[in-house]
Design a protein around this nucleic acid. Structure first.
Lengths: 150, 150
DNA sequence: ACAAAACCCTAGCAGGAAACCGGAGTATAC
DNA sequence: GTATACTCCGGTTTCCTGCTAGGGTTTTGT
């Protein structure tokens, strides 16, 4: 299981899906609403949304009647961008880490190269999925479930 | 950095590279030799080699003049097999975990599917590399470094 | 102006996994 | 039979994740 889905990323994606669902209304969604809907600890979700805001993925409206909105349209937000924001690899930090950590020894460098290749393959998958894609897939699934129910 | 290289896997791969280098001699390599060569804590390496033995990747010779050997030729050992042995995902355990953990909610199921796709992409890379490939690449690199030195 | 609603920061804790160490036992070579 | 080296099992230390806590700041509604 090289690619692990952390609880953190899971929560963030669920929250972003909620925001994407109401994106066209331009109305902010509050932390309480999201946490209640998706069963996420609200104080924890607050931190995640703050991180996403600093990463330019959502923007916030302070004060009463405030809340969170997507910073861009769901089609313009890739899953890679989201996990990169949360897990905090700035593309520089990680390159340096992987490049310098074991390049001292020849074998270590070889191993790091292969791992980076596997990493790149996984990243490419996440790069090619947008929030909109997830919404579309959910809607399709929901439609399907409904048909089976009838 | 979806795909992380754990210290455990790194150590194991370095040790296996040492074993692969002397594979044709049929002579066992001792823990002390490997740990000294690659700067790995010997008592820890012992555990890793025990795991690899239970996974059928190396075999051991007890007693004086004992040590470890590869169970098969380096060409027949894939990197995926190695990390699967160490990280302990039996292909059953992980499938169940990913399938049941969040399929209760619709959104969670969608997310898990995408993650599994990314995971599969990374696994495929590791599946297509063998120990022999790493050895070959190391030898080529070594040759190159030597040419630059002269 | 004032209070309530909501976001904003920082610190810290509990649990568990990863990394590592030690001691007593067991098989093999000589 | 002794030295050598693996084997089993348990303990310790360190680190990270998920989560909680308590204060602060900004905005809205009246």
């Amino acid at each position: 299981m090289p690619v692990e889905l952390s609880c953190k990323s899971e929560y963030a994606l669920l929250a972003l899906l909620e925001l994407a669902a109401v994106y066209t209304s331009k109305e902010p969604l509050q932390i309480r609403q999201i946490s209640a809907q998706q069963h996420i600890p609200d104080r924890y979700l607050e931190q995640l949304l703050a991180t996403l805001r600093r990463g330019g993925i959502v923007r916030s409206q302070r004060g009463a009647k405030g809340g969170y909105l997507l910073a861009r349209e769901p089609r313009k937000i890739t899953l890679l961008e989201i996990v990169a924001c949360l897990e905090g690899f700035d593309a520089q930090t990680k390159e340096q880490e992987d490049a310098t950590k074991f390049t001292k020894t020849l074998e270590g460098g070889i191993i790091a190269e292969v791992w980076q290749e596997a990493d790149q393959a996984a990243k490419t998958i996440l790069q090619n999925y947008t929030l909109q894609d997830l919404c579309d897939r959910r809607d399709a699934r929901q439609q399907l479930d409904l048909m089976y129910y009838i």
